[in-house]
């Protein structure tokens, strides 16, 4: 039976970008306000899941050719390698540092190495969540 879901497709085409923007905002709003890598990854994963819901598997995989297991593995590798990066400078494992830079648009900005670690966490969360949802909700076709 052919089901007419043009409203869902049209709405989700716009809403996906709103959710992605909100996920990046949550990821960058970091350690002073609510947010961070884990929550940003959750919101980014929900945007990808909405893409899968509104269309089907083959359409999304044609435009987003990622194996999300490898995305999770890349995230874990990134998060651990920032921990080992602190050993090179002679400080304990997983030590973090930060400094203030004068960027052209943003003004004086605090840049930390926590952000790289959080990027790894976000990639891990996206990969694991999409893999879980994907494997429990396939129709076996």
């Amino acid at each position: 039976m052919k089901i007419n879901d043009v409203i869902l497709r049209t709405i989700s085409r716009i809403v996906v970008f709103i959710i992605l923007t909100f996920g990046v905002y949550l990821f960058l709003s970091g350690h002073n306000t609510p947010g961070g890598g884990f929550i940003g990854g959750l919101v980014l994963a929900s945007a990808i899941i909405l893409l899968y819901l509104s269309t089907d598997l083959e359409t999304v995989q044609k435009s987003l050719p990622l194996d999300f297991k490898y995305v999770a593995a890349l995230g874990v590798f990134l998060a651990t390698s920032t921990g080992f990066g602190s050993i090179i400078f002679g400080v304990p494992f997983m030590s973090q540092t930060f400094a203030y830079f004068d960027l052209p648009i943003f003004g004086v900005t605090e840049l930390t190495t926590v952000t790289i670690f959080e990027a790894g966490v976000a990639l891990t969360v996206v990969g694991v969540l999409v893999t879980i949802i994907f494997s429990i909700s396939e129709d076996g076709g």
Partner: peptide, 20 residues
């Protein structure tokens, strides 16, 4: 998203379709 997922499950029996 959860409302969409529930209603798709009721309507079609599968949440993510392999090919529409």
């Amino acid at each position: 998203i959860s409302t969409i997922a529930i209603s798709r499950y009721i309507e079609r029996g599968a949440i993510i379709e392999h090919k529409s």
